[in-house]
Design a protein around this nucleic acid. Sequence first.
RNA 1: GCGUUAUUAGCUCAGCUGGAUAGAGCAACGGCUUCCUAAGCUGUAGGCCGCAGGUUCAAAUCCUGCAUAGCGCACCA
Length: 533
Amino acid sequence: MKQRVSALLREKFGREVVLEKPKDRSFGHFATPIAFSLAKELKKSPMAISDELASSFEQSDVFNSVESVKGYLNFRLSENFLNDYASWALQNQDEFAKQDKKEKILLEFVSANPTGPLHIGHARGAVYGDTLYRLAKHLGYDITAEYYVNDAGNQIDLLGLSIQLDGRENILKESVEYPQSYYRGEYLTKLAEEAVSRFGKEILSDESRQKELALWAKDGVMEIITKDLADTNIFFDNFVNESSLYADWDRVMVKMGSGIYEKDDKIWIASTQKGDDNDRVVVREDGRPTYLAGDIVYHNQKFEQAYDHYINIWGADHHGYIARVKASVEFLGYDGNKLEILLSQMVSLLKDGEPYKMSKRAGNVILMSDIVEEIGSDALRFIFASKKSDTALEFDLAEFKKQDSSNPIFYIQYAHARIKTVISKSSLTEDEIMSATLKNLDENADILMFDALLLPEIVEDAFASRQIQKLPEYLKSLAASTHKFYYDCRIIGTKDEAKFLKLLTLVALSLRVGLSLMGIKAKDYMSKEEETI
RNA sequence: GCGUUAUUAGCUCAGCUGGAUAGAGCAACGGCUUCCUAAGCUGUAGGCCGCAGGUUCAAAUCCUGCAUAGCGCACCA
């Protein structure tokens, strides 16, 4: 819709035109301040120019009116145009707002170590990534969701050790002395129990079998992680194991060419040449690769698959890591600009105004699964999608447990359910509703229809800018328009019943598609929860 | 010290490709139900958009400096 108007103006003026939605809806559907920018070159006042421009628009099937107000050009779309567009949207149903972008994108996110369940910080990156994924799919991109499993390195050894310690304490009932760093949490006991029944008790006490234990256990941990994700409607196309990559190391090192050198018996990457603060070690004196080595091979593998674009979502505490990975990609001979790294910031949780207590049971972290259990997957997704991902966020769980308008996810679901209910109460058939024409609407209805038709540009904008919060913001305002309309306007039994129901069907469509892009299923009915006394 | 992200209503946050009177929810104080879910609608109050400069016809938005805060600055992942 906006594209259409934008294109018309571009054709008319021979330049890109800034098009905005006026805050005050009485000004029209779209507006442009173009007269201000033309004022200088034409040496005329903005008002004179906009007056002139306004009168230069002839009768068209897109615009109902073009008005000049204080230098702004305000456009009101024609009823025909809006009605046709709405009918088209309704015919498309869930295909509404889809596009046909062709680019091939590899999106890597979560990639949490396979050493324990996901915590709340992971959840934010997970929601961010999955929402981008859904938006991209809808826009027609060929996008692949990938999880990088760090199943090599110290943390795997630590996993083996941690299971042994936990098992010796909780199963063998020994008194155990814990070292400085180890993992803790309920899941370890379960893994230890399984390990005992599979390998026998000895596995808990034999230090030489730590690695064996860990390599077996990480699959169990990955099951926990994929379940945490699936409970939030997040799924991956690929899992890439770090351990599988090292076979390729020699070849990749050669490919790095002059980007790699040896010094003090270690192998380094000359990342300083590409703007990093320091050169980095990739292989230690004893021959063990560093974490970066794995990432170099991993990114080489990514780029050898020839995607058009690569997106990584990392925790913000990794931002210092960006320069060296980009340097690696360039040493490998690829365009570093194709690699885009998005950051997701910390989350602090409150519950009834108090800092959320981390559970000892979970090992002093806040588990994603605990939060999902408390407020549900929909609310969790909504919160994280609502805030810019690269800024810190603090939120109170209590707000998302309420069943009223203060809970945005509830508010939106209720709008959708209200529409479904009123449609089901009507005696009109679907054909009767759909054959109505969306014209001669009053102001409320006109605003509602226009809002509902904005979905495509919101979806496109949210993905292009990587600002997924635009979608929930939009859905909130669409829900608000819906509730207002519902309150102001009696529907069933009026002469406009079919027209209004068609309009509401359109709104429900935008709400449903919008929610689905957030991984949330729209509800057709809200059941009132029993008050607990 | 360097890098990075921020600073908007009492609180949590939108708005930032510069444009018309700075928004939402919560919290405070009001109003609206013989009628489709009041789980809703609605009014009032609350703002030197961190501070100081600059660019511009126009700055919360762009640039510079300062202040404050978070994060990072590993041969840990």
